[in-house]
Amino acid sequence: GSKLPPGWEKRMSRSSGRVYYFNHITNASQWERPSG
């Protein structure tokens, strides 16, 4: 298991139950796992 880039964390969408990734530094969110 590799770590996520700085700022990123795994989140669960309440509406759909899907996992997404959220960056608390930039407030960005995306479905794809961030690389870096």
Rank of each mutant, 00 (worst) to 15 (best):
G7Q: 05
S16P: 06
I25F: 12
W31M: 05
V19S: 07
T26H: 04
E32M: 08
P5G: 05
V19Q: 06
P34G: 01
A28P: 01
G17V: 03
G1T: 11
W8Y: 01
N27W: 08
Y20W: 06
R18M: 06
F22N: 01
R33P: 12
G17D: 05
S13W: 08
S15P: 10
G7V: 03
M12F: 15
G36K: 09
G7T: 02
M12E: 08
M12V: 15
S13M: 12
W31Q: 04
G36P: 11
K3P: 15
W8F: 01
G17Q: 07
R18L: 07
R14Y: 09
G7A: 04
Y20P: 00
S13F: 09
Y21T: 00
H24R: 15
R14G: 10
S13T: 10
S16A: 09
Y21I: 00
P34V: 01
F22Q: 01
S13R: 06
H24G: 06
Y20I: 02
S15H: 14
H24N: 12
R18S: 04
W31R: 07
Y21L: 00
G17K: 09
E9S: 10
M12A: 08
V19N: 04
G1H: 11
S2T: 13
R33I: 11
W31N: 05
S35M: 12
S35H: 10
S2Y: 14
S13E: 13
L4D: 07
G7C: 11
S29K: 14
E9M: 07
S15R: 15
S35I: 12
G7I: 03
L4C: 09
E32W: 11
A28L: 13
E32L: 07
P34Y: 01
Y20G: 00
E9D: 04
E9F: 06
W8Q: 01
L4H: 01
K3N: 13
P6F: 13
R14L: 13
R18H: 06
Y21M: 00
G36F: 14
R11N: 02
L4W: 04
Y20V: 01
W31E: 05
G36H: 12
I25Y: 11
A28R: 15
K10Q: 14
F22R: 03
R18T: 05
S35A: 11
K10N: 02
L4Q: 02
K10C: 13
K10Y: 07
R11L: 07
G1A: 12
E9I: 11
G1N: 13
R11K: 08
M12T: 13
Y20L: 02
G7D: 04
N27Y: 09
K3S: 14
H24F: 14
T26F: 05
R33C: 08
G1V: 11
R14E: 11
E32V: 07
S13G: 06
P5I: 03
L4A: 02
W31A: 05
A28Q: 15
R14T: 12
R18K: 09
S35V: 13
G1L: 09
Y21W: 07
R11V: 06
W8R: 00
Y21Q: 00
S35L: 12
K3I: 11
M12K: 12
S35Q: 12
S16R: 08
S35N: 11
L4F: 03
H24M: 11
N27I: 05
P34C: 04
G36W: 15
P5D: 03
P6S: 08
M12W: 15
S13P: 01
R18V: 05
I25G: 05
Q30A: 03
R33Y: 13
S15T: 14
I25Q: 09
K3W: 13
V19T: 09
K3G: 14
P34F: 02
P34S: 02
M12N: 07
S2G: 13
R14A: 13
G7H: 10
E32R: 07
G36I: 13
N23P: 00
E9P: 01
N23L: 03
R33V: 12
S13L: 13
P5M: 04
M12S: 07
W8P: 01
T26S: 07
G7P: 07
Y21E: 00
S13V: 11
S13H: 15
G17P: 03
F22I: 06
S29E: 06
G36Q: 11
Y21R: 00
P6Q: 09
Q30V: 05
S15K: 14
I25M: 09
S35T: 13
V19D: 03
W31V: 06
P34A: 02
Y21A: 00
S2P: 12
S15I: 14
S35P: 11
V19P: 08
S29L: 14
P34L: 02
Y20N: 00
R33G: 03
E9C: 12
S29T: 14
K10H: 05
R33M: 10
F22W: 09
K3R: 12
S2Q: 11
K10I: 15
M12D: 04
S2N: 13
F22L: 03
R11F: 06
Q30D: 02
N27K: 15
S2H: 12
S16Y: 09
K10F: 07
N23T: 01
I25S: 06
